[in-house]
């Protein structure tokens, strides 16, 4: 038991070994591709961005002590690559495609009654100390799950805004949305995230 553990840890000790662990690299590449595809919606451009980011990061792999540092670094590079692609490209998307489906609207309006007031069971509660949540590893697992649960187009604009850090004008230009449509989508995304975090973390699964 001790022997196999130290062997496994040994694999992570130096950054250069990232290059030799094909399984690890492939998993990481898939995660990056998923993220890049969501943002760029062009498989070819997304693959290019991922490849460039991986190459850039692997060149400096030696300077990383462990996988988490490496992963953070490679995603930071990927973020910049994606921002470049998005800023350069003027992609025209159908507004209807981006605005999401009608079912989506129904799911959301179920939070409110006909007069636009909260349904009693959907009324947001006061959250516990947020800074404290951030220190708990399980919070980030829940947070990522909630992000992954957002419908594709909402996830896309929300991540452009909050993760890549583009401003309203840049996003509207990129996805050919009016400012007001973008605000509607971000509002929906935030309502969903708020609800998801409340159910899965602040109300329920906190002590999981």
């Amino acid at each position: 038991m001790t022997g196999s553990t130290s062997q496994a840890e040994g694999k992570q000790l130096d950054g250069a070994s990232q290059l030799n662990d094909a399984d690890y690299l492939e998993t990481l590449r898939q995660q990056m591709l998923k993220f890049a595809n969501l943002q760029i919606s062009d498989t070819h451009l997304a693959e290019d961005a991922v490849q460039e980011a991986l190459i850039g990061a692997l060149k400096k792999a030696d300077s990383f002590g462990g996988r988490s540092a490496f992963k953070t670094w490679v995603f930071a590079i990927l973020k910049n690559k994606i921002a470049d692609v998005l800023r350069k490209r003027q992609r025209l998307a159908e507004v209807s495609e981006l605005m999401g489906s009608d079912e989506d609207d129904e799911a959301l309006s179920s939070l409110f009654d006909k007069r636009g007031h909260w349904n009693p069971e959907d009324k947001p509660n006061r959250w516990g100390d947020p800074e404290d949540s951030f220190k708990q590893q399980q919070f980030w697992v829940v947070f990522e799950t909630c992000l992954n649960n957002l419908p594709g187009n909402q996830a896309k604009v929300f991540m452009m805004r909050e993760y890549i850090g583009l401003n309203t004008d840049e996003i509207c230009k990129e996805v050919d949305l009016s400012v007001s449509n973008l605000h509607v989508m971000l509002h929906r995304a935030r309502l969903k995230l708020q609800k998801c975090l409340e159910i899965k973390w602040y109300d329920g699964g906190k002590h999981a």
Binding site: G65, G66, S68, T72, F134, Q137, W140
Partner: peptide, 18 residues
């Protein structure tokens, strides 16, 4: 939370390994 998430500045399972 998004800022923390974006900077990777949280205790991921990978960190635990390290």
């Amino acid at each position: 939370a998004m800022q923390g998430f974006a900077s990777g500045n949280y205790d991921s399972p990978d960190n635990k390994d390290n």
